[in-house]
């Protein structure tokens, strides 16, 4: 029987035992969740624009504005003196990932409040798989945002140079760097997404989450190496240096910074990536992910104890 004939008038109710969910079913579910996140993102043009404008404001306002006051000496992984704008780029990529992770969690809190989260969680697939798929949906969006940001910088530098303003040409990333950051971006997105997911499980209402955004995002960015290297922070304050050292976001930024210059792996031990960054990001990813899965577990997690998700009276 052809597929068309089978589907001509399929039954609404199947009496047969449902088939086991095989790899193709898992793939269909994963693709469906990721595709929905991308579709939602593409339908929200203001979200796309704000994700692009935010790091650009930092780059042009702080980076180019303060470039002459904030010179950078030679340091790993850079081979020469760099302008401050070049130093900022990995931190801004990290910032895009952080904001996107928080935005995804914001949408999960919203989904919980509106009940849309329930439709995801009543799927027959394991909840851990559903949550990881949802995370990858958010990461896919984040990757699109990161490359849109990098493409804008590249195009803007060349377009302004053609018009005679060469000062915006200073961010010159080797072409391999655009490819080699991808694994670091995905891993960092997974870490920050898991962290935000765990955070969302502990937050009951959207209004509370807005407060946490202020208490989480900005401290994570400012108390890290996204705007200043560790040694310079140490010169200013030993206490802040210790905070920055133990801030997981520092390790995200450094992982991306070294990945830009293809320094992941034993290419040159003298200038290579400190394995601590990779280990911290991997470790934190595992920790936060387990926390999020635990929190969304119906028998043990915070959601069940509290009466969520999207709990309504009646």
């Amino acid at each position: 029987m052809t597929l068309e004939a089978t589907l001509k008038r399929p039954p609404i109710v199947d009496d047969v035992q449902p088939s086991k969910l095989g790899p193709r079913a898992y793939l269909a579910c994963f693709n469906g969740i990721v595709w929905r996140e991308v579709l939602r993102y593409l339908n929200q043009s203001e979200r796309f624009l704000s994700a692009l404008v935010r790091p650009l404001v930092w780059l042009f306002g702080l980076g180019y504005g303060m470039r002459n006051a904030l010179g950078m000496p030679i340091q790993q992984p850079y081979e020469t003196y760099i302008p401050y704008t070049v130093y900022m780029v990995p931190g801004l990529v990290g910032m895009i990932l952080l904001f996107n992770a928080m935005q995804s969690s914001l949408s999960m809190v919203y989904d919980r409040e509106t009940g849309a989260m329930r439709t995801l969680l009543v799927s027959p697939f394991p909840r851990s798989f559903l949550l990881v798929s949802k995370l990858f949906g958010g990461i896919t969006v984040a990757v699109l945002q990161v490359y849109a940001f990098l493409a804008f910088i590249w195009l803007f530098g060349r377009a302004s140079a053609a018009l005679g303003a060469t000062e915006f040409l200073d961010i010159d990333i080797p072409w391999q760097g655009y490819l080699s950051i991808l694994p670091a971006v995905v891993l960092s997105g997974l870490m920050l997404g898991s962290f935000a997911l765990f955070l969302s499980s502990a937050i009951k209402q959207l209004e509370n989450f807005a407060g946490v955004m202020n208490y989480v995002i900005f401290p994570m960015i400012f108390f890290s190496t996204s705007l200043n290297p560790l040694w310079r922070i140490k010169e200013g304050s030993e206490t802040l240096w210790n905070v920055a050292r133990f801030n997981p976001f520092t390790h995200v930024v450094e992982l991306i910074r070294f990945a830009f210059y293809s320094q992941i792996g034993p290419t040159d031990p003298a200038r290579g990536l400190d394995p601590t960054h990779l280990a911290v990001v991997v470790g934190c990813t595992a920790l936060f992910l387990l926390g999020a899965i635990y929190a969304y577990n119906p028998s043990k997690g915070l959601i069940g104890r509290r009466g969520g998700p999207g709990g309504t009276g009646g």
């Binding site: 969910l21 193709r24 079913a25 898992y26 269909a28 579910c29 693709n31 469906g32 969740i33 595709w35 929905r36 579709l39 939602r40 339908n43 929200q44 509106t114 009940g115 849309a116 329930r118 439709t119 995801l120 799927s123 027959p124 697939f125 559903l130 999207g310 309504t312």
Partner: peptide
């Protein structure tokens, strides 16, 4: 609670749900 994605089409909403069932 209403649980449809208002920005997506009916077909997109339903195929998303179909994906949640493999």
């Amino acid at each position: 609670s209403r649980t449809l994605d208002t920005d997506l089409t009916l077909a997109q909403n339903l195929t998303y749900h179909a994906a949640l069932h493999g």
